[in-house]
Design a protein around this nucleic acid. Structure first.
Length: 113
DNA sequence: GAGATGACGGGCT
DNA sequence: AAGCCCGCCATCT
């Protein structure tokens, strides 16, 4: 789309920083980008994520610690598998201990100038 | 330029 | 406790 940095790019850049075995919520991503209420936009950003990308989108989950991804689908199943492969365990209710895996960067990307 | 959409979140019923 | 509704933001048609 626009040249350089769009909101999408910021989302990707931030998600790219999430280490293996850790997760982050849409709301947190939005908050770190300076838009605490832009959780929807964050999801939209990942939705538009191109096939060829180096972004660990599967580490982004909703505030419940579960996978949203339209509720279900091949992608959702894949995401769960990837997270489990990194050590993130899901309970019987398809949720993981968010408080335990939640990751937080040292400094907000938004102010990283 | 306006309207509708969506991988969400929080609040109220 | 579970479910429904509204609002937020950015992008797309």
């Amino acid at each position: 789309m626009e040249a350089g940095e769009t909101f999408y790019d910021r989302v990707y850049e931030l998600v790219r920083q999430v280490p293996s075995g850790r997760v982050i919520t849409y709301g947190h991503v939005a908050l770190l980008l300076g838009a605490p209420a832009a959780a929807r936009a964050v999801g939209y950003a990942l939705h538009s994520l191109p096939a060829a990308n180096d972004v660990p989108w599967w580490r982004v989950i909703n505030v419940r610690g579960a996978i949203s991804l339209k509720g279900r689908g091949a992608q959702a199943d894949l995401q769960r598998a990837l997270l489990e492969g990194e050590g993130v365990r899901f309970g019987p209710d398809d949720r993981c201990e968010l408080e335990r895996y939640r990751w937080w960067p040292d400094e907000p990307v938004a102010e990283r100038r």
